[in-house]
Amino acid sequence: MIGIVGYGAYIPKYRITVEEIAKTWRKDAEGISSSLNVKEKAVAGFDEDSCTIAVEAARKAVKMAGIDAQKIGAVYVGSESHPYAVKPTASVVADAINAGPELTAADLEFACKAGTAGIQMCMGLVASSMPDWIDYGLAIGSDTAQGRPGDALEYTAASGGAAFIIGKNEKELIASIDQTFSYTTDTPDFWRRQHAEFPRHAGRFTGEPAYFRHVVSAAEGLMAKAKMKPVDFDFAVFHQPNGKFPLRVSKMLGIDPKRAKQGLLTPEIGNTYSGATMIGLASVLDAAKPGQKILAVSYGSGAGSDAFALTVKKGIEKKRPCKKVLEMVKEKEYISYAEYAKFRRKLKTL
């Protein structure tokens, strides 16, 4: 049996409200906030990046798992804001949690779903029939998402990340991953070219043919493969580019949107890109009880979705993290647009 042995989430403490961003561009804050169902977003500090976020999340995951970090045999970090174009974030993470040097590591990129692709890669490695390959794999989704000043995405592009340790020892699992299914097509809805500072997107094209098609297809494919129905799931977590898409896709799949609320954090912290589905799943695991079933579906532009069916295990009760995701969401300090521009180095001199 393969599953999650431990997890950790990290949300930077700084927040900027939609109102503050809208004020800068003289836009209708109330209208934007209600159309996106987003109030504010998390902003990484001046000395934070997707690597420091990944390390903080990974440390929490190792602590919760209660394992020797030296037994981690693979580290994958999914992000679309890796600090280097060439030089892995994963090697920094591995050394910073003292997991190295005997492990494999790589950085992944698939817009917002590279972290869940890392989970699948770890699942494959721990389940491999090759003797004594790896005991545990660490998959991280972490981002300090870039929003072009004045663009619609600036209201949501946020910072945060989560890490999951994947293992195969049934006694250690806090949740089993019973099935996974992916759906991938060449759909150019959002991209960032090499050396470009900010991504570009295709406006409304990011909806129906992109997010909804892939999330629905992956979720339905998963349910068919696992012989499960929408009513079988106690919780559902979806990628959350805004606060509305996950609730709408939940309805489209026949899942009561109330079941998607525990994992929906975008209204309070924005879209943490590679971190979004994974922080949402961490929040669900904070609340879930043994025996409950979870559907988790990521989405990455370009485009693809990874869907997972999980069952919460008894082991979760003894391993509950000391600080829940929803508590981290509440720990915040508001910043002005000027401070935000400085922290995220949007000023040319920084």
Partner: peptide, 13 residues
């Protein structure tokens, strides 16, 4: 865990 120094956009962090 934080960035201590990141002064050269083309240099190491």
């Amino acid at each position: 865990f934080r960035k201590i120094s990141d002064i050269d956009p083309e240099g190491p962090i």
